[in-house]
Design a protein around this nucleic acid. Structure first.
Lengths: 239, 239
DNA sequence: CAGTGGTCTAGACCACTCC
DNA sequence: GAGTGGTCTAGACCACTGT
């Protein structure tokens, strides 16, 4: 990847993160940035739009691109982000314990979504933060497209392996967050009190060619659960 | 608003919603769409990118724009969406009971965020679904920029009033979802059992000129809570 | 008024898919 | 090969902000 507009976006994001541009500052004008990076104005604008979506800047007509003050929390959180990425980004001292990893028959349904893959790799992992269980993850990696996973990968970042080793392009996901009572064995592993429900995040993850590749159910201890989001209002007058 | 790319996006979204384009279909090519709408290719692409962000289509290199099958759940849910908008979109039979609406002093902090506005309008509303309490909303509408709100508005859509009557441009928000025990009076109004926690959504909402205008704390009955999201993987190599 | 961002265009070149 | 989307350009015109 050496796309010009991504280079520009990354460079600016880097400079915002490292306080070379601070909240309340204006970035150089689009014209200046275009000259600086040797790009056309539209290309520069594409980069700035990316930063806008991420909540790093706000563009003000006739004034300029204002650096926002939100990144402290939101930087890598919303969107599709793996536990390992969060862990690193937030500096949590989290450990991952792989409880199971085995080849299984793929489930026929996940919620209401029918699954066409026949085989899958089932992985169960316990996330431990400050020596206390925080999250239990159950993943099905579908085969196809994923037929094999080295044993060590599950303890680290599956996403990094899929993207960097297998060259898969993880693209989008649907997520559903609810609060429910959970089976006793799960409650036990999370150290939940009697009748204490868990926060359940169910997600379906897709590659850029629309292949469904992962089904995840995450059981969170309610006291350790926190979801942070930056959202832009999406207008679409579809009555 | 008569922006060409928005017109195109709305028209296509409309046609997808009404099954003139079905999941699994390809939209006409960018070239064809450009001719159809009398727009340049870049303008057409801007519209298609919008639909991609919303999860309505997926673009496939060398092939075309594929209509996705996700909108049934996700259509208007993620992003900033008011309760009334959700209510209508999902066909819930929800009632809103305004418990309080009064002018107050603005809080000095909301979480860790300092508030500069001195005055505010405090509104407390109970959302009732199927004759049972589901959500208790506490809103501060800050003054400035909002100095007055007709009594009836709180029972309907505040956002519609702000956008259509006051001409404010609601643009972005930060949200935080946690599970916590709540004060007794709130537990009572939500019919929560003893020691039963609530799902709490705290949000800060901003106008397009970056003015903070609303602080919201929503207390959800855990059994009625459901958050659905469509997310694209956001890459930004900000080590 | 000059400077800013917002929209739109016409055309170029590339990489990909499918025949 | 023809057709598709992906990137990028140079330039135009507009609306908004400040002075």
């Amino acid at each position: 990847m050496a796309l010009k507009h991504e280079m520009i976006a990354n460079d600016l994001a880097e400079k915002i993160k490292h306080q070379q541009f601070c909240p309340g500052d204006f970035l150089p004008s689009e014209k200046q940035l275009s000259e600086l990076y040797g790009a056309s104005r539209e290309t520069t604008r594409k980069a700035l739009n990316h930063l806008t979506e991420l909540g790093l800047i706000q563009k003000l007509k006739g004034k300029g691109s204002l650096v926002l003050d939100i990144q402290k929390y939101t930087f890598p959180i919303s969107g599709i982000t793996s536990f390992q990425e969060l862990n690193q980004a937030l500096g949590l001292h989290a450990k991952t314990k792989v409880l199971r990893q085995e080849k299984v028959k793929a489930p026929e349904y996940f919620g209401k979504t029918p699954i066409t893959a026949k085989k899958a790799l089932f992985i169960e992992r316990l996330r431990i933060i400050d020596d206390a269980p925080a999250v239990l993850d159950q993943d099905y990696l579908l085969d196809p497209p994923i037929s094999e996973l080295p044993a060590k990968v599950a303890a680290n970042s599956i996403y990094a392996y899929l993207e960097k080793q297998l060259g898969l392009e993880i693209d989008y996901a649907t997520k559903e967050i609810t609060v429910e009572e959970v089976p006793k064995d799960i409650a036990k592993r999370l150290d939940l009190g009697p009748n204490e429900p868990a926060v359940i995040v169910r997600s379906l993850s897709y590659l850029s060619d629309t292949t469904l590749f992962q089904l995840t159910t995450s059981y969170h201890r309610p006291d350790k659960f926190k979801f942070i989001d930056f959202a832009r209002r999406k207008k679409l007058s579809t009555n």
